[in-house]
Simulated assay, not measured.
Amino acid sequence: MDPLSMFDPEGEVPPAVPAATLVIFRRAQADGPPEILMVQRSKTMSFAGGAAVFPGGRVDPADFTLAAQLGAIGEDALEETAGRIAAVRETLEETGLALGVEQRPDHADALRARALLLERGELGPVLDAMGWTLTLDALVPFARWRPKHREIRVFDTRFYLADLGTGAVDLQVDDTENTHLFWASAAEALAMAERGEIKIIYPTRRNLERLAQFDSFDAARQHAEDVPVRMITPFMGQRDGQPWLLIPDDAGYPVDGEPLDMAARG
C-alpha cells in the first residue's frame, strides 16, 4: 500500500470504533525511571499485528451497559466511564492484572477472575462473582487518539495511566491476541524499537516519547492533570520538502511528527 494513500487530510473524519488502553506503571527494581507494561500483539492480528502496544482493546456494548448501571448519565459520561471499564476488562484479559478495583486481589483471585471473564465475556458478572467494586478514579485520563485513515480500521482510543507500585507481580499473556508481555521504561522501549527488537506504531511512539519525560508515576499524573485531554488526529504536512505525519505542537508531546515513510513502516 502506498503510505500516502492511507491519509485523507481533506476528507471527513471517518466513523471510529471506541477503544481504551491502559499505561501501567511500576517502580523499577533498581534505581531508575519507572517501567511500563507492554504487550506484543500476534502477527496475525489485523490491527497493529506484531507491534508492541499498551494493554487495551475495543469498548464493548456491555461496557456501556455497566457504565449506565454505575450511574453514568449523558453521552460524554457514558463514553468516559465505558472507556475506563474497557481498559480494566481488557487489561485483566490480556495480562492477568486486576487494576481499577478496590479490593487489591492477589494473583490467585486475579486468575479466577480472568478465567470467568474469558467464559462470560463481560466484566459485570466477574465483579459480582468476586465481590469486587470498581475504583475507576484510579485510572488517570492521559490522551485520546483518533487517526484519520482510509482503507484501514479506525479506533477512537482513550489512554489512561495506572500505578501498580511494586514490581513483584505475576502476569499471564492472552495468547489468542498477544505473544509476549514485557516491562521496560519508556526510553528503553523507544531504544528497543530503534534497534529493531520491537515494532511500535505511530501513536505508541509519540506516547512513549511523552512518557519518557517523567521519573515517576506521580510526575506523569501531574502532567496529565495539567494538560487537558484533547482529540489527537494526525495530519499531513511538509517539512524540508518531505511529507510528514504530524500532531498539534501544543498537546503535551515533546515530538510532534516524523517523516511519513517512517510512520508508515511503524
Score class of each variant (00 low, 15 high):
T65S: 06
L66A: 03
L66F: 14
L66E: 12
L66T: 08
A67F: 10
I73T: 06
I73F: 15
G74Y: 10
E75I: 03
E75H: 09
L78R: 06
L78T: 00
T81Q: 12
A82N: 09
A82V: 01
R84N: 03
I85G: 11
V88C: 11
E90A: 10
T91L: 15
L92P: 04
L92Y: 00
E94R: 14
E94C: 01
A98Y: 11
A98M: 09
L99M: 08
G100W: 15
V101H: 07
V101R: 10
V101K: 10
E102P: 00
Q103N: 03
R104A: 05
R104D: 14
P105N: 05
P105H: 08
H107Y: 12
A108D: 08
A108W: 07
R112A: 01
R112V: 02
A113M: 10
A115E: 12
A115M: 07
L116W: 14
L117R: 05
L117T: 04
L118A: 05
E119R: 13
R120N: 11
R120L: 04
L123T: 01
L123E: 12
L123S: 05
L123D: 11
G124L: 07
P125C: 04
V126D: 15
L127Y: 15
D128N: 08
D128A: 06
D128W: 14
D128T: 08
A129R: 13
M130N: 09
G131R: 11
G131K: 12
L134P: 12
T135M: 07
D137F: 13
D137S: 08
L139P: 04
L139M: 11
V140R: 15
P141C: 10
P141A: 06
A143D: 15
A143N: 14
W145R: 09
H149G: 01
E151V: 02
I152L: 13
I152F: 06
I152K: 14
F155H: 08
D156R: 11
D156Y: 15
R158Y: 14
F159M: 07
L161F: 11
A162K: 02
D163S: 05
L164E: 11
L164N: 11
G165F: 02
G165C: 01
T166C: 03
T166G: 10
G167W: 00
V169E: 09
V169C: 03
V169Y: 05
D170P: 00
L171N: 03
L171M: 04
L171I: 00
L171V: 01
V173L: 10
V173A: 08
D175I: 02
T176H: 13
T176K: 15
E177A: 10
E177H: 07
N178M: 09
N178I: 02
T179L: 13
T179V: 09
H180S: 06
H180I: 01
H180Y: 04
F182G: 01
F182H: 03
A184W: 03
S185L: 10
A186G: 03
A186W: 00
